[in-house]
Nucleic acid binder design. Structure first.
Lengths: 355, 355
DNA sequence: CTGAAAGCGCTAACAA
DNA sequence: TTGTTAGCGCTTTCAG
């Protein structure tokens, strides 16, 4: 195979050339460019080196640097499903924060279906320094293998009990806000339509709902979980079962706008008007939430801050600090739109058609 | 028998150790492990090396290999917005395909707002071999700089005229299917609610709609574009303008489920029932599309195949082939749900409430 | 057929 | 204060 013909003068400038131009050696140039604080050097030489670097357009070769330093400057973000808007929001800020800390982010999808060892490949081939794991769930193979590979990592959003490295949000508080909002509107019989209960944050939100209801003196909420989440799955069927089995319910708190949309569909099919006959609200905001019919009241969460906090926490680990649990303190916030309203005075009765 | 050997202790197994155990030298071990076809070696030695590698759990250090070979084994995927479900679908398959071709994928978000040079950093610091660019749009800085850096790249979904390296789908055909679907239902006055027309695929879809309408003898469709897409933006306002200004329209073809949802909202506010008074359909399917009220008829697109094709095309470039335009041939497919139905016999008249 | 030598580009340790 | 030496772990010559 022929050698790639490289345009003349197109060749990448190396550190040695910068050093030569500044009339010094590579190590000195390296330490100046990397701002080595232990280096005592003539200010004039420093200026010469920096100027040479600038003039030549020098960019360090990260790979060479990585090989020498024994650190790659790359992190991997492991998501369960990329199509879930929640993860997109977390990831987005994580990428930015990582870059500001000097790391690139590799993406890995670790779906429930395809138990894939690409994460391990990445780790064991020395491509990355640490792992942001948003795909934790019980029984996931990754967890076991992480113990073997001793690689710094944090669990994002989905925590792992006792791992001591969970970066999560105030999920229980989110439920509390939701329940308070509904209770303030006079609702007493409410349902919590949950994401799979195998997932840690889903469980924390259920707990939050139950605790808040108890504290407010409401009857115990109905809890139903949608066990398959991929691509909508059969959320509609579950929503139908929920609304059908519990006509006494006047408000549903769903674990995502998608689940809430399923509830809207189910109620609509049964001729129950939202919010007149039944209120519906969702955990987390998405662009679609505001465009549902009716627009969904949601509990907005600090997903961007979560992404940012997760990276910072991991970077601290990489700098030698021990791992630690972290709760993003920003408070959940109810955004009231049109899907929640005062509870009906009389128990809701299915009507022939929307009002 | 499939006992997974584990590197006990901190120390990572090096090639030299594999070679030692197989009683040969590193170069030979390397060539055997990398399946060098020009290597003629005793089958027995080959077996010894592979067995030693397996037993020691050897994983090549990708960084060292990259440094030596002058190729990093990493690609960057540049997306405009991660929260757009379309890109999530493309990206998802791209990551898998890349892995199967031996590449990791770095993620970069290149939003309209934050003109960010992190892509260039990645390139000029020698972290990646090539670029998958899904964020192309006129005036984007990246385009100019790409010419300077001579880095292999392809444009995904959003093409750049005359680049000769666009990997796109049959967008015009998607519009054709949509228009045919609506025409078959008796609609004649239709509207195309477009994504920003600065974007190449949006333009191709508009062209497709106009061409199909002309071919079918329909009056020229109304075209209105939503110029800001980020986070829903003011899609609802635009949708209101569209439906309000054109009461004669009996069907709207929107450029995404989100835009379609905005149209559903607007029509609902105006007391027009969907699909009774007006049909609505969308380009591309998402989990939410099926859960809208009413569930959206959509034109499903092969986004996964697009992601896969883009990676393959880029990899070919990296292997020395010249870039080439590529159209993913899989046909757009209309998924009929409940938001489209026969055109009303009389021109639709705003009514006081849904039927 | 196989192995020894020579780096890829950078930086940590040590000399001067 | 500065330069020299020595690799990081791998793979590509090029001799044996």
């Amino acid at each position: 195979m022929a050698r790639q013909p490289v345009a003349v003068g197109q060749h990448r400038v190396r550190l040695a050339e910068v050093a030569a131009r500044a009339v010094t050696s590579s190590p000195i140039a390296s330490r100046i460019i990397n701002d080595d604080p232990t280096l005592r050097v003539r200010p004039e030489l420093r200026r010469r080196v920096l100027r040479a670097a600038r003039e030549l357009g020098y960019r360090p070769n990260e790979l060479a640097s990585a090989l020498r330093r024994g650190r790659t400057g790359a992190l991997a973000f492991v998501v369960p499903t990329l199509t879930n808007p929640t993860f997109a929001r977390i990831l987005r800020r994580a990428v930015v924060e990582a870059r500001e800390s000097g790391y690139a982010v590799l993406l890995v999808e670790d779906s429930d279906e395809a138990p894939d060892d690409s994460v391990l490949q990445l780790v064991s081939s020395g491509r990355i320094d640490g792992l942001l794991i948003a795909s934790a769930r019980p029984g996931i193979q990754l967890l076991a293998k992480l113990r073997t590979l001793e690689i710094p990592h944090v669990f994002v959003n989905r925590g792992v009990d006792g791992s001591g490295r969970n970066v999560v949000m105030r999920d229980a508080d989110a439920s509390q806000r939701a329940v308070e909002h509904l209770a303030a509107l006079g609702h007493r019989r409410i349902a919590h339509f949950a994401a799979p209960l195998a997932l840690d944050p889903a469980r924390r939100r259920v707990a939050g709902t139950l605790a808040a209801a108890a504290r407010l003196g409401l009857p115990e909420p109905v809890v139903m979980a949608q066990e398959r989440l991929e691509d909508g799955g059969d959320a509609l069927a579950t929503a139908r079962r929920l609304t059908h089995a519990h006509p006494e319910i006047t408000a549903v708190y769903a674990d995502s706008p998608m689940l809430a949309a399923a509830v809207l569909r189910a109620l609509n099919e049964q001729g129950r008007a939202v919010p007149h006959d039944c209120s519906v609200m969702a955990y987390t905001d998405t662009p679609m939430a505001a465009l549902c019919t009716p627009p969904l009241t949601v509990v907005e969460m600090p997903l961007e801050a979560l992404g940012s906090a997760a990276v910072l926490s991991l970077v601290r680990q990489l700098e030698g600090h021990p791992p630690a649990d972290l709760v993003v303190h920003l408070a959940p916030l109810v955004l009231q739109r049109s899907s929640t309203a005062a509870a009906p005075v009389a128990p809701a009765v299915p009507r022939t058609r929307n009002r």
